[in-house]
Simulated scan of single mutants.
Amino acid sequence: MTTPDIWRKSSYSGGGQGDACVEIAHRPTHISIRDSKTPTSPHLTFAAETFSTFLQALKVPPQA
């Protein structure tokens, strides 16, 4: 039996119902991402290390 993913939204998801954002589910070995407007649609899954590298790259300012 598998444990269902626990999805969470960013605190930056905006006003209203906060349904115009992405949600993530964190597991020890992977991160899943889905569109909050269509939670039953397929989602993307990345290795946890790959997702962490992606987030770090977002934090690096572009070089001129």
Results as ranks from 00 to 15, higher is better:
L55G: 00
D35M: 03
T45E: 07
Q17H: 15
F51H: 07
A48G: 05
A48D: 04
F51T: 07
S32Q: 07
H43P: 14
F46Y: 14
P42S: 14
C21P: 05
A47W: 01
I33W: 00
F54K: 05
F54H: 05
T38F: 08
S36C: 12
S36R: 06
A25W: 10
L44H: 10
A47P: 12
H43G: 14
L44N: 09
A20S: 15
G18F: 04
S52R: 11
G16P: 13
E23K: 05
I24F: 01
L55V: 11
L44R: 03
T40Q: 10
S52G: 13
S36D: 11
T38G: 06
K37H: 03
T29Y: 07
T38M: 11
R27I: 00
D19V: 14
R27G: 09
F54I: 07
H30G: 07
F54C: 04
A25D: 04
F46C: 05
V22L: 13
H43W: 14
A47L: 02
G16T: 15
H26M: 09
S52T: 15
A20P: 03
T50K: 11
T40K: 08
S32Y: 01
R27N: 04
L55H: 00
T53A: 15
T29N: 11
I33S: 06
H43D: 13
G15Y: 14
I33A: 08
A48Y: 05
T38E: 12
A48P: 00
S41C: 04
S41L: 10
F46H: 06
I31T: 08
E23D: 05
E49M: 09
I31W: 01
T50P: 02
A25M: 07
I31E: 00
H26A: 11
P39W: 04
Q17I: 15
K37P: 07
F54D: 00
T45L: 01
I33H: 01
L55R: 06
D35K: 02
S52C: 11
H43Q: 15
F46D: 01
P42K: 07
P28T: 04
F46W: 05
P39G: 08
F54R: 00
D35T: 03
A48T: 13
T29W: 04
E23M: 06
I33D: 01
R34T: 04
G16I: 10
T45Y: 00
T50Y: 04
V22T: 06
A25R: 08
R34G: 01
A48R: 13
T38C: 08
D19C: 11
Q17T: 15
E23R: 05
P28H: 10
C21G: 05
P39H: 05
D35C: 03
T29C: 10
G18A: 12
A25G: 12
H26C: 08
I33E: 02
T45S: 07
G18T: 10
S52K: 11
P28A: 03
G16F: 13
D19T: 14
C21H: 09
R27A: 10
H43N: 13
G15A: 10
V22Y: 03
F54W: 06
